[in-house]
Design a protein around this nucleic acid. Structure first.
Lengths: 218, 218
DNA sequence: TTTATTTGGTTGTAAAAACAACCAAATTTT
DNA sequence: AAAATTTGGTTGTTTTTACAACCAAATAAA
């Protein structure tokens, strides 16, 4: 499958056809690169030069803490963008590490060009920037949700709110958890074994039910 | 002091002069209203119709939890904007409550007009939207910082990281904490008395020093 | 100035989470 | 298919936090 066929219905290219995208990504000096599982796509504190677009695959946004803990910020999947925070800010470096969780095809878009509106006010660039605003808005909302989860005082409450958000997002009580247990713990900022214990208790108390990554809110 | 003199060097109006702002806010159907201390400027779940601009004063962005806890998302001060999350998203309601912490003058800007680019591509609106993107970017960064703080496992670490961010922001070791102790606890999502205890311990351990709201990282 | 009210620190107790160590099941690699 | 690795659940111990109750100091109101 051609790369243009892959990306043409990504949200970030909404309103643009295949030829528009070709022209735009050419203008953005895009480079495509394939990463294997566990490869680092971008490193925390590396110079931020490119917006990252996941063409196909999956990656985690993580920060590794001094004390050995890992903080999972988010998961990137096919069509996801990373770098919107850095793009319009003064920070010259990536604020997190992006690591592929499987074989992943990535497109890099030059920051300075994306950043700077075309002098001839080209509609492609304008459309792209509009889509980027929507993306930032969604990102803001997601981060606020994360803050709401992390603000809960107990692991139990954190789990419940996370599941509530996922249920809303997936529009069903039968929730497919997109994390492994370790990732879930890293996202909720709790100890893995403690999380496992809490999940068991919640099951026994008939608050939730789960098997592997299939969860139900009771 | 005239309202236009007050707002003309707000970041959100950067690149626009007094007459531009007059025209723009007229176009945005802006309404100005004064609130007293503890007045609700906007209520969580109220219909989101207006972007909120603090012309003068101070307000808190809070959510009140079912269990009685209060979650302090952020403080708004003169020149601050609230509503950028809601503006470009599908959510039709405010996601938090905005409450004045003193006498506060607020300008409301009609969502639908801010939202919709002028057909004649007016430079005022364009400049405003550009400034709004910068604001969203800063907001994203701030929320990420909050997530980083809340992801810390202990109150001690949360306090240290908060102080580190504040020191960076204020560009000095001698930090002016912009929160009361209760607000600090609400922001860090911990119990107030437990926070107080931790602060005392940290002082005894010579990690930090503080008196009232003046903190020092040692 | 006197009285309320708010704000911040202290203490003891109960509950919860972190941590470490271990084991079983599932998955991946060889 | 066998071996190695990853993943998830359990248990006991230590540490930390939440909660409640209380008091002192500072601030606001009368």
């Amino acid at each position: 499958m051609n790369i243009w066929d892959k990306v043409c219905d990504f949200n970030i290219f909404k309103g643009l056809d295949k030829n528009d995208i070709k022209a735009l990504t050419f203008c953005f000096k895009s480079k495509v690169q394939v990463f294997e599982k566990n490869d680092i796509i971008a490193n925390n504190m590396d110079r931020f030069e490119n917006l990252i677009l996941i063409v196909q695959g999956q990656a985690n946004i993580v920060s590794y803490m001094e004390n050995g803990n890992t903080n999972l910020q988010d998961k990137l999947t096919t069509g996801s963008i990373y770098g919107d925070i850095e793009l319009f800010s003064k920070s010259a470096t990536y604020n997190a590490t992006i690591v592929a969780t499987r074989k992943t095809e990535v497109m890099f878009l030059n920051k300075y060009i994306v950043n700077t509106p075309c002098e001839n006010n080209c509609y492609r660039h304008k459309t792209f920037l509009n889509n980027l605003i929507i993306h930032m808005s969604n990102n803001l909302q997601k981060k606020q949700q994360t803050i709401n989860i992390l603000s809960k005082r107990s692991t139990r409450e954190k789990v419940l709110l996370l599941l509530k958000y996922l249920a809303k997002e997936q529009n069903t009580k039968y929730i497919m958890l997109p994390y492994s247990r370790q990732e879930m713990a890293d996202f909720l900022a709790v100890d893995r074994s403690a999380l496992s214990l809490t999940l068991s208790k919640m099951k026994k108390d008939k608050q939730i039910d789960f098997e592997k990554n299939k969860f139900v809110l009771l």
